[in-house]
Amino acid sequence: PVYLSVKADNSMFIGNDPVTDETMITALNALTEGKKDTTIFFRADKTVDYETLMKVMDTLHQAGYLKIGLVG
């Protein structure tokens, strides 16, 4: 499974590897070998604001990742 996490300080990680807004999709493409039907499990600290969550989800959708599971 692929886990994308947003921490309380808005830092992002794919698994244990830090990513930025600019590198997130490139890292996901490498990890999933470009398979856009891969489910991305998205988790965020409860203090992360809604705007940040939606920005990340919008970026995922624009890149073609449509299977996003929200996890606690």
Rank of each mutant, 00 (worst) to 15 (best):
L4R: 00
K35G: 04
K35M: 07
F13V: 05
T52Q: 09
E22H: 07
D9P: 10
A44P: 09
D58R: 13
M12F: 06
A30F: 09
T59Q: 12
N29H: 10
I40C: 01
E22P: 02
T20C: 04
I25F: 03
V6C: 03
T52L: 13
A63S: 06
K55R: 13
Y50K: 12
G64N: 02
G69R: 15
Q62N: 12
G15E: 06
L28R: 00
D49N: 13
I25S: 03
T32Q: 02
E33L: 12
G34Q: 05
D49V: 09
K67G: 04
G69P: 04
M24E: 00
T59Y: 09
V19P: 01
S11D: 05
D9W: 07
S11V: 10
I40M: 02
G34C: 07
Y50T: 10
Q62P: 00
G72R: 10
D17I: 15
V48S: 04
Y65S: 00
Q62Y: 07
K35L: 06
A30D: 08
E22T: 10
M57L: 13
L66E: 08
L4H: 01
L70W: 14
H61N: 10
A63D: 04
V48A: 08
T23R: 04
V19R: 01
K7H: 14
V19M: 03
M12I: 14
L53E: 02
G72T: 13
T38R: 08
D37F: 06
D9F: 07
V56L: 14
I40N: 00
N16Q: 09
G15I: 03
D37W: 06
T39L: 14
T20N: 09
S11M: 11
A27G: 03
T26V: 12
F13G: 01
T52A: 08
M24C: 03
V48I: 09
K67Q: 10
D37Y: 06
T26C: 08
P18W: 06
L31G: 02
K67H: 12
S11P: 01
L70A: 06
A30R: 13
S5V: 15
A8E: 09
P1Q: 09
A63E: 07
K35F: 07
N16F: 09
H61E: 07
M54I: 11
A44N: 04
K35T: 05
E51S: 13
K35Y: 09
Y50V: 12
Y3Q: 05
A63N: 10
I25T: 04
Q62M: 12
I68E: 01
D37E: 09
D21L: 15
K46Y: 10
F13A: 04
V71K: 06
G15K: 03
P18G: 05
H61T: 11
D17P: 01
P1F: 13
I14A: 03
K46Q: 11
V71C: 14
T20H: 04
S5C: 15
L4F: 09
L53K: 06
Y65F: 09
M12S: 01
V2Y: 04
M24P: 01
K67E: 06
Y65R: 00
F13I: 04
Y50D: 08
D17C: 13
I14F: 06
I40L: 04
D45V: 03
G69N: 15
F13M: 09
M57A: 05
N29C: 05
N10D: 06
N29M: 08
D9T: 06
L31R: 09
T20S: 09
D17R: 12
V48E: 02
D37I: 03
D45M: 03
M12Y: 13
E33C: 11
D21H: 15
V48H: 03
V19A: 02
I68S: 03
V2C: 04
L70R: 06
V56E: 00
N10S: 11
V2R: 02
K7G: 09
T59W: 09
K46P: 15
G34Y: 06
G64E: 02
R43L: 14
L4E: 00
N10V: 03
T38C: 08
K55D: 04
I14K: 01
L28P: 00
P18F: 09
D45Q: 04
P1L: 09
P18L: 12
T52N: 06
R43V: 15
D58M: 13
L66V: 10
F13L: 07
Y65G: 00
D49H: 11
G64T: 00
L31D: 01
N10P: 01
L66C: 11
D21R: 14
T23I: 04
L60R: 00
D45A: 10
E22L: 10
A30E: 10
I40E: 00
T59A: 13
Q62E: 11
L31P: 00
D9G: 09
T59S: 10
N29G: 05
E33D: 13
Q62A: 14
V48T: 07
D9L: 05
T23Q: 08
T26S: 14
D21E: 15
E33Y: 10
L66S: 10
P18H: 08
Y3V: 11
I40P: 00
K67F: 11
N16K: 10
G15P: 01
G72Y: 07
Y65I: 01
D9S: 07
T26P: 13
A8F: 09
T47E: 15
D49I: 08
D21V: 15
T32G: 02
G34M: 05
I40R: 00
E22I: 09
V71L: 13
A8P: 06
M54G: 05
Y3G: 02
L70Q: 06
M24F: 12
N29R: 06
M57Y: 08
L66Y: 15
D45W: 06
D21A: 15
G72D: 12
G69Y: 15
L31V: 11
D58T: 13
A8Q: 07
L4M: 07
I25D: 01
P18Y: 08
D49L: 12
N16M: 09
I40T: 00
I14E: 00
L70G: 07
V71E: 10
L31W: 08
N10K: 14
V19E: 02
L28A: 01
G64C: 04
K46A: 13
V56R: 05
R43H: 14
T23G: 07
T20W: 03
D21C: 14
N16G: 09
D49E: 12
G15N: 15
A30T: 10
F41I: 14
G15A: 05
G69F: 15
I68T: 05
V6F: 12
K55E: 04
Y3L: 09
Y65H: 01
M54W: 10
I68Q: 02
V19Y: 04
Y3M: 09
L28C: 02
K7Q: 09
T38P: 04
K36V: 07
A44E: 02
A63Q: 04
T23L: 05
G34E: 05
D21W: 15
G15W: 04
L66I: 11
V19H: 03
V56H: 04
L53F: 10
N10Y: 13
F41C: 13
M24I: 12
M24S: 01
M12G: 01
H61D: 03
Q62I: 07
L60Y: 01
G34L: 05
D45K: 02
A63F: 06
L4Q: 01
N10E: 06
M24Q: 01
K36R: 11
G64K: 02
F42P: 00
I40K: 00
A30W: 06
A30M: 11
T32I: 04
D37V: 04
K55T: 06
L28H: 00
D37L: 05
L66P: 03
R43P: 00
K55S: 07
F13Q: 05
M12N: 01
Y3F: 11
R43A: 12
T39C: 15
M57E: 02
G72P: 13
L60P: 00
E22D: 11
D17T: 14
G15C: 11
P1I: 11
A8M: 07
L60V: 05
A63T: 02
T39Q: 15
